[in-house]
Amino acid sequence: MIEMNGEFIAFLILSIMAIGGAVFMLNFVRVVHMVLSLAFTMLSIAGIYVLLNAEFLAAIQVLIYTGAVSILMLFGIMLTRHRDQEAEGVRPWHKFFSFVGVAAFLGILLHTLYRTPFTEETADVGRFSVDWLGETVFKQYVIPFEAVSVLLLVALVGAVILARKESKS
């Protein structure tokens, strides 16, 4: 039986907000509205991280996803044609099959998740502090960390190649 305490109520509200934002993002017609509802979802997810005792992750989530990514998307939209509306060009049976596929996938996931409840004790999360995180990243995971910097460089170069104006045309 689920206990009705403050944590559960907070989780309920936050998850409804997160799912609602995602649904609205899919159903809005204007691109700006989509970005705003996406930001809303991201913010709610940050709230869920707080509930899970992952305060650092929550702060990062707000800073990067709710803040930076959303603002970047908004800038992108404002600097390009932002009055675009999505054209309804999808064949109806296509939509139907996507729906069936996604519903089946959700069914399998939910079935799996609910059939096997976790009986184990929750681990002690007290030692997962920020300085421990930093130490892990720069000691054990230094190779993927460096690789990520190459990855970012590639993304940057790629954005420049794909977006720059023709030099002469």
């Binding site: 993927p144 990520v148 190459v150 790629g158 794909l162």
Partner: peptide, 12 residues
């Protein structure tokens, strides 16, 4: 990370 590096460069 390796997979994404390969994929991202391939997309471009």
């Amino acid at each position: 990370v390796g997979l994404e590096l390969l994929s991202l460069a391939s997309y471009i």
